Amino acid sequence: MPDLSAFPITARWPAANPDVIQLYSYPTPNGVKVSIALEELGLEYEPHRVTLADEDVKSDAFLSLNPNNKIPAIIDPNGPDGAPLGLFESGAILIYLAEKTGKLMGKTASDKARTIQWVMFQMGGVGPMFGQLGYFTKFAGAEIEDPRPRERFINEAKRLLAVLEKEMTGKDWIIGEFSIADIAIVPWLNGLEFYGVLETVGWADHPNLVAWHKRFYARPAVETGKNIPPRT
């Protein structure tokens, strides 16, 4: 049985089954990327609910695994070098899990490169820009009277959606087959509804994205993974 005692996080969130991947997460767009990937890949894992409250993500226990105090994070008791591996950053985790299993990165080296390209597109563009859009429309930033910050992120969200709409022309999945790139991006498209900005960004004017979203959430593994760990 793997010894996870070197990871202080396991004192606060104990592993009932230390033989399987330990997932520390919450069902946000970034969080569900990993639970969906684990479900799609058929990997055994144990989820631990880490809320976004400071007492969780800024606790010494969580910071010991992710010094950047953001979910998700994992411990793989069967790391690539024969020892447990702790890992944070959702995009890095997706790539790690795909490489570990040899799945969800396409069939060729070119497929893999394009998969990582679109994962990085989400990490560097869709996630940060949509997150700021949410802040300035739904959360504290909505109280700011100056319209320029809000307009900036509305316009940037529209631009990114246009990039994706064009890319998805004639495709079911963004690299041509289902991959971690779809898992990275589509939960953030789903977040537009949570932020209440579907009409603001003209979501209905993107038929390729509407169809992609519907196709993605029709997958059984996605249906399961989108609620892990449960909010309450």
Rank of each mutant, 00 (worst) to 15 (best):
P8Q: 04
P14A: 14
A15M: 13
A16M: 15
P18Y: 15
L23A: 09
Y24F: 10
Y26I: 15
Y26Q: 13
P29S: 08
P29V: 10
K33A: 13
S35E: 08
E39G: 12
L43D: 10
Y45L: 14
P47N: 08
P47I: 13
H48V: 10
V50L: 04
L52C: 03
E55V: 00
E55I: 01
D60P: 07
L63G: 02
N66D: 05
K70Q: 06
A73E: 14
P77N: 12
P80C: 00
G86W: 04
G91I: 02
A92G: 01
Y96L: 00
K100L: 08
T101Q: 07
G106V: 11
S110R: 11
A113I: 15
R114C: 08
R114A: 10
V119G: 03
Q122I: 01
G125Y: 10
V126L: 06
G127T: 05
L133T: 15
G134E: 03
F136L: 13
T137H: 15
F139T: 12
E143G: 05
E143T: 09
D146T: 11
P147S: 14
N155A: 15
K158H: 11
K158S: 12
R159C: 08
L160D: 11
L164G: 06
E165S: 13
E167V: 04
T169P: 00
I175M: 02
F178I: 01
S179Y: 04
D182A: 03
D182C: 02
I183P: 01
A184F: 06
A184H: 01
I185S: 04
W188Q: 02
N190K: 06
N190Q: 11
W203Y: 14
W203N: 09
A204E: 10
H206V: 09
H213V: 06
R219F: 00
P220V: 00
P220I: 00
V222A: 02
V222D: 00
E223S: 07
K226D: 06
P229Y: 02
R231D: 07
